[in-house]
Amino acid sequence: MQAFISLDGLVMPLDRANVDTDAIIPKQFLKSIKRTGYGPFLFDEWRYLDVGDVGMDCSQRPLNPDFVMNQARYQGASILLSRDNFGCGSSREHAPWALLDAGFRCVIAPSFADIFYNNCFKNGILPIVVAHEHLDTLFADCFANEAYQLSIDLAAQTLKTPSGDVLSFSVDDFRKHCLLHGLDDIGLTLQQQDAISTYEAKRKQEAPWLFS
């Protein structure tokens, strides 16, 4: 996993609540057995006017000019700004894979769905929860200013705006540690294999029906 230490990035505003993972990456693209290649299909149904399918050359497809991702000023954005309950619905990890593949390393919203939030950390994406009062200002400033950038420092847990305002955010220590160092948590868990074996042996005595 790619480590996340800090990020100075262009912000793309997606001004709606309840952005679900079906919208982030529609089902037909879940047929792939790879972890990469989903970027061109990110937000497919909002982004293109035709019906997308696996293996399409997206450079030839008709773009929806009204969708924020197709506006010139947001090209190259690496921070996505959205509203409540971002990432709700399906557990598909293809959603963070698609965001990452399209260049997004950070999503800012007032709340996230649990599974999506967790999936982000497994893929080097930092989800940041900000309070509603700050969110409205971020949206307003982002719409008002071209090339609107934010500076994120994970170690300090801060988000800095172009005007110099600094917002702090919270993140679990363990998740932060893994993200800062790009750690694979399977390896960490396997360091506890004796504890897992001990637990299993005990449970086989207590609840043998779980092991038949």
């Binding site: 990890e93 967790n118 893929n123 868990t189 396997l190």
Partner: peptide, 16 residues
């Protein structure tokens, strides 16, 4: 769970 955790459970029978 997501696919990373599917792999985690396959490999360790546990989740953090």
């Amino acid at each position: 769970i997501g696919t990373s955790e599917v792999e985690h459970v396959l490999a360790t029978q546990c989740l953090i």
